[in-house]
Nucleic acid binder design. Structure first.
Lengths: 224, 224
DNA sequence: ACCTGAACACCGTTCAAGT
DNA sequence: ACCTGAACACCGTTCAAGT
């Protein structure tokens, strides 16, 4: 019987396995569940054991972010137009982050602390520079673009909590009820849009529109 | 001697004064400093006293968000073009959030839980609907737009921590050093843009470009 | 090199009790 | 209505000690 994905069976501890377990835990129960002590018991080890592999708790969160950024599969640079290339790169980042909505909040502040994040930033900045952005403009736009992918994932309706099935339906119902009880004179548009705030009717369309927004926005601020 | 802004002198506790103190604390030392016990001592009261005014800690954080959203001064609806109106509203939101970079992370997930946040959402959705967006499109775009204002504020270079003066300079220096030590063959663009990642050279320009991006992006995804 | 034991300061929260 | 005292379960972290 080999080790499980969570690494629960006896096997040497390692930065890698601990970070993997941490990401897994965050995916299942949310970031707040990622705790030194919880992680330790999941690996059948004493809390203090983790301090051999990580400086402190923040370092294990860094480890989570690193793993996600490292999972981005960047497309090979093509010679197509810059905005098509940008879209492809952003899509690759989205594909990597989308499976981790509950861990996504960790990502944005940690791009520049992560090796793989730096590679991403380099790539995006490079594309923007070739499109005519100055060094200052490119860095600002690149970091906004990467943060926006995270926003897209975290603010997808109905993906904010670790619940599933029964419990999720209950939450959805009560959200709907709350919105439906708003005064119709003051909130006509919100009432009409209410269902789309609690559940995403078409995820692919949602993300496609998000991508369009980001590419169009970038084109819009591109220096003449 | 009347009460101070933090409400440290003896005066009855209230939801309002507690939320104000919490926001102030978050602004000074960051969200993690906002703790039931810390807040209690700042108001010369026992930790359990807070539970009379708030259900739990999350409700305190809701209170912070509510205060920020309530501070938005919406422009009176004009009859100008939809994109100019959108820009004005987004600018108003930005103006309210900008003074609270360290508290901004609380805001995005709490728009729909806050009275003032609902008003904002209603307003933006209304504008988008008049511009031709469907109910589904409008809700998605509106929530992305509001989240993006937060992103703009939180990811402004150099505004991520509670430090000031001396200590801030030290952090900046070490960040610069770290970036400067990257292999130039692999990170040519990042090296060139490095300074702009640690300090914002021109805040107003930064936010102006952000606003342009959001308006242009919205225009770009507007249904034909 | 890698992990444990004991200890510390801090946290959110409940519940019964005071005024 | 509004606040306190005592208690509980949980947290991150240090430091000396084991193997």
């Amino acid at each position: 019987m080999a080790s499980t994905a969570t690494g629960s069976t006896k096997e040497r501890l390692s930065r890698e396995s601990l970070a993997a377990g941490a990401l897994d835990l965050a995916d299942r129960e949310g970031i707040d569940a990622v705790t030194i002590r919880r992680l330790a018991t999941e690996h059948s080890v004493t809390p203090m054991a983790l301090y051999w592999h990580f400086k402190d708790k923040d370092a294990v969160l860094d480890g989570i972010a690193e793993r996600v950024y490292a999972s981005v599969v960047l497309p090979v640079p093509s010679d197509g137009p810059w905005d098509d290339q940008l879209r492809e790169v952003l899509l690759a980042v989205l594909a990597a982050i989308r499976p981790h909505p509950l861990a996504a909040d960790l990502l944005a502040p940690r791009i520049m602390k992560s090796e793989a994040g730096l590679v991403l930033a380099e790539r995006v900045i490079g594309m923007l520079r070739r499109a005519g952005f100055s060094a200052s403009e490119a860095s600002q736009t690149a970091s906004f673009l990467l943060c926006s992918i995270v926003t897209l994932v975290t603010s997808e309706p109905g993906k904010q909590n670790p619940l599933t099935g029964e419990a999720q339906e209950d939450v959805d119902r009560s959200k709907r009820a709350k919105l439906a009880s708003l005064p119709p004179k003051l909130f006509p548009n919100l009432l009409e849009s209410a269902p789309y705030f609690v559940t995403c009717d078409n995820e692919d369309e949602y993300f496609a529109r998000g991508m369009d927004f980001l590419v169009e926005g970038t084109r819009g601020v591109r220096p003449a």
